[in-house]
């Protein structure tokens, strides 16, 4: 996967680039808006990660320039803590995701992966499936190996999001944002409780576990490992 990282804080950029490279990604780094925009317009990337505040054109200007040039590469905008409430502005400018600094590297990695594997056209899908798990989006029904699974609306939304990102680590923050629209971390373990209930329902027929907990990071929905 080719990733463009636009970040003016050299130490932070090195840290992120090193982590992504160790992860097996190809990373180009630009330390200002001008170089970043040049690379973004002239090279092909799978994901672009840009800081919001940059010397030269800032992250949102780069984003608008890309979208105006019909370049629809997924863009993740990094923002200072003080601007956490301005994510709407970034999303309106065409950002695909938003992450406040400082962040855990695992959070950034999970979000980059989710962005890169985003299906191009979601509107066409009527059914999702992972292993023996099926979700009928029209009739809003879920079956596991043919056995109907009764889900509450929130559990359905949670499972739908996980089934759209099979095999990817989904962090608690991502789930809170995408499933509950919570742009903050509640002090109570909202996500864990819902995931464990969903897990119980999916395994009620004695099936193998499909939702795996990744310690310190989040959850993965994947085909159960044999054994």
């Amino acid at each position: 996967m080719r990733i463009l990282l636009i970040e003016d804080d050299v130490a932070a950029a090195d840290y992120v680039a090193k982590g992504l490279t160790e992860d097996g990604q190809v990373v180009d780094v630009a330390h200002n808006g001008k170089d970043g925009l040049f690379l973004a317009l002239n090279e092909r990337y799978d994901v672009i990660v840009t800081d919001r505040m940059l010397p030269g054109p800032d992250g949102l200007s780069i984003l608008r320039a890309l979208r105006a040039s019909a370049i629809n590469t997924p863009v993740l905008v990094l923002t200072a803590l003080a601007e956490v409430d301005r994510r709407v502005e970034g999303l309106e400018a065409g950002a695909d995701d938003y992450l406040a600094k400082p962040f855990a590297f695992s959070e950034l990695r999970a979000r980059i992966r989710a962005l890169a594997r985003r299906p191009a056209a979601q509107a066409e899908e009527h059914e999702l499936s992972v292993a023996d798990l099926r979700m009928d989006l029209l009739r809003r029904r879920v079956t596991r190996a043919g056995r109907p699974v009764e889900l509450l609306p929130t559990e359905f939304r949670l499972l739908e999001y996980m089934m759209r990102h099979p095999g990817e680590v989904l962090t608690r923050t991502m789930l809170l944002e995408k499933v509950w629209d919570f742009a903050f971390d509640p002090t109570t373990n909202v996500v864990d409780v819902h995931v464990s209930r969903l897990r119980r329902k999916l395994e009620a027929g004695g099936e193998a576990p499909m939702i795996r907990t990744v310690r310190g990071a989040g959850y993965v929905l994947a085909e159960p490992h044999p054994g």
């Binding site: 409430d85 629209d181 919570f182 742009a183 903050f184 509640p186 002090t187 109570t188």
Partner: peptide, 19 residues
């Protein structure tokens, strides 16, 4: 109003009530 802020305010109230 602001949906994110009101959601957070309500979640905080519920967090408090739980804790």
């Amino acid at each position: 109003g602001s949906a994110p802020l009101l959601r957070q305010a309500l979640a905080n109230l519920l967090d408090n009530a739980l804790a």
